[in-house]
Amino acid sequence: MRWIWIDKFCEFESGVRGVAVKNVSLAEELLKDHFPGYPVFPPTLMIEGMAQTAGILVGQARGFRENVILAKIRNASFDDYAHPGDQIRYEANIDSIDEHAAATSGEIFIVTQQATPDRETSPDREATPDRKIGQVDLMFSHVNERNAPEGLPEHNFVFTPEFMRLFEAIGSSGNASHGDRS
């Protein structure tokens, strides 16, 4: 099993901001147990979804030269559940970044209007803002061969080809806007 908890990267502004979405499906095995008779997407996995959204943003800002490791959850708060059929939107921003670490802040929304081809241009989009259900602020460490703790693999185990395909797909997505990716 590959641990990818975002479905699509949709907006990207290098070194600044990244947006990804995740569709919650009743077909996901874990919802059978979380909870029996009341399927909701676990907030812990929303932290992971935000970590992947923010992590790819941080990794790209440093040219994917290092592994980017989630080092600290600065804050995580949730006001509501995400149910099957919901689309979760992760919006991550880089607050601080230096040669050792990065701090990000992130908001989690439920998309109130399912994505359609003309969603970006839909005149009533402003009238139905997505519903915020959580806030997740994180810290990442940049780990390279010089400062890696013993036992970590030497190759880049975070930004695998499989994970990078999500990022590469931004440009080919019809309604995605993206900023400078150089």
Binding site: K72, D95, D98, A103, S141
Partner: peptide
């Protein structure tokens, strides 16, 4: 250890200063 980096980032924001390594 990670908290020391967190504290540095937060001090930079709070006091609008740049703290070198």
């Amino acid at each position: 250890s990670i908290d020391f980096l967190d504290i540095v980032f937060r001090l930079e924001k709070t006091f609008e200063i740049k703290i070198s390594k």
